[in-house]
Amino acid sequence: MNNASNGKYAAEAHDLNIYYGSFQAARDINLLIERQKITALIGPSGCGKSTVLRAFNRMNDLIPSARTTGDVHFHGKNIYDRDVDAVEVRRRVGMVFQKPNPFPKSIYENIAWGARVNGFKGNVDDLVEESLRGAALWDEVKDKLRQSGYSLSGGQQQRLCIARAIAIKPDIILMDEPCSALDPIATLRIEELMKALTRQYTIIIVTHNMQQAARVSDYTAFFTVKDDRTGYLEEFGATKEMFTSPQSQVTEDYITGRFG
């Protein structure tokens, strides 16, 4: 991977097929992820959207039976090429999960530790503050940095995880239903934070909450399943269009709650 970060797209999936053993979870996915925008992946359960999300940082590699064909272009290179280090990919493509998963360490260490492991040589105090500010958490935790990450509320823990993700300066942040364990107020805070993060980062989010996709994303990809239960991309476009005038009847039915 080179360091070129110009161009319209932060990542591009081409003809992506993902299998778990003999089961095909995603078929012929082509997806262009625009830089510094939020792309939402939506669709009914089992449509392969989380699988596709994980393909962007090779998280599926951690599942023994998973196999991926096709390309994910990132910084001008296919991240599935043999000479690409999956750990390096994951450093540049961070991830935030459904349930907040802070390390069993202090708030400070939650951010400093990952950065140190990744060879950070600068001023750690500054990095911690900058990351916590970036995740809109600084004001709430600045006086208790030595307390455990677990002492925070669910919404704060999720923002701590986002702070941890941005501390290692990724290009893309993947979010897998980041608000599903949060109350509506904490959810709105994360959504506002996502919008702010696009000043620097590109975000791909999987969400079951269609209103959330409509509120936060710039682009929406709607995945669904065909008779063989294989996930495919039914429609992909600007969120404004998808939620007002979708092209496909299947999308229309899903978005208006007629199926799924």
Binding site: M210, A214, E252, T256
Partner: peptide, 9 residues
């Protein structure tokens, strides 16, 4: 009801 798409229109 948070109508979308055709319902919203």
């Amino acid at each position: 009801q948070q109508p979308m798409a055709g319902d919203m229109r």
